[in-house]
Design a protein around this nucleic acid. Structure first.
Lengths: 145, 145
DNA sequence: ATAATAAAAGACAAAAATATCTTTTACTAT
DNA sequence: ATAGTAAAAGATATTTTTGTCTTTTATTAT
């Protein structure tokens, strides 16, 4: 199993793509994004609708429309995307799926995973949506294949 | 999303349970295990059949039969279980699902996840199947709910 | 106003993961 | 050898995730 769901993978890649496009002052259409991150177009459309409803990205309909990200949203952490799509079980839940797992009633892996969970969480919290824009524009980072 | 698949969660919990039972010199039946880790019995049966085929646990049919783990298997790392069930994408794959992601063609999160992947991997490699037996027997650790 | 455009919304389909039940095989104790 | 037991194997069902297509709504440019 991967760290994120397919939906979340597409979401993060798309948001990075839209962030890059927005920084250069443009809006990105769904076809352009889907091609740019190599994802199924209609499936991605659903994901972006959801992110839009949740205020993580913005959109405009009609000619010259498309998706964009405002400067305030650019400084949001990518943990916001992950939480919106996959929930917080990645950094809050028990690795073995136990509802009651805690300090007082720990699963065998509770302590060994504590640090890892925290690391994932703080990493996602300290990485922003707009953080990779210049490297993306320079072509140093990849969002597809 | 959780770190492991449901199948893998059940697998690890069941293996810990069988390890504990084996250490006290007994075999564990499927009903006993399913009850002991709070999992669907028939689904767990399938999982254990698979682990048995792969040599991670052993089984005996008929009266007094059941599942057990030999002393050699007790010192195996739990990464063996994870790999057998979920594959190695958790510690090898790209967080954003890119096939080609690497040092030369990294995704935006490649570097931030490198350390985390390594930590997860080494943790799972350094934790053995039998490691929690005494604490499990003392009731200090939980495998259900 | 109207036509063209692009996202939103709704409905549907396929695949994978999770779960259940039945039949068969192997082993044990009598 | 036979009956009882428990896992293995096979078949089927349900749910969730992933993916596709069509219709509607909002916006823009003419």
């Amino acid at each position: 199993m991967a760290i994120f769901s397919k939906t979340c993978e597409y979401a993060i890649r798309a948001v990075f793509f839209i962030a890059k496009t927005s920084t250069s002052g443009n809006r990105a259409g769904i076809k352009e994004i889907a091609a740019g991150i190599d994802s199924p177009e209609f499936f991605l459309a659903k994901i972006l609708q959801d992110l839009s409803r949740k205020g993580l990205i913005s959109s405009v309909k009609g000619p010259n429309g498309g998706f964009y990200i405002g400067s305030e949203e650019l400084s949001r952490p990518i943990s916001d995307i992950v939480t919106a799509v996959d929930g917080d079980s990645l950094f809050r839940g028990c690795a073995l799926g136990l509802k009651q797992c805690s300090e007082v009633k720990p699963c065998p892996l509770h302590n060994e995973f504590k640090d890892i969970r925290n690391r994932i969480h703080s990493m996602l919290k300290n990485t922003t949506i707009g953080e990779f824009n210049s490297e993306l524009m320079e072509g140093l980072l990849s969002l597809k294949k």
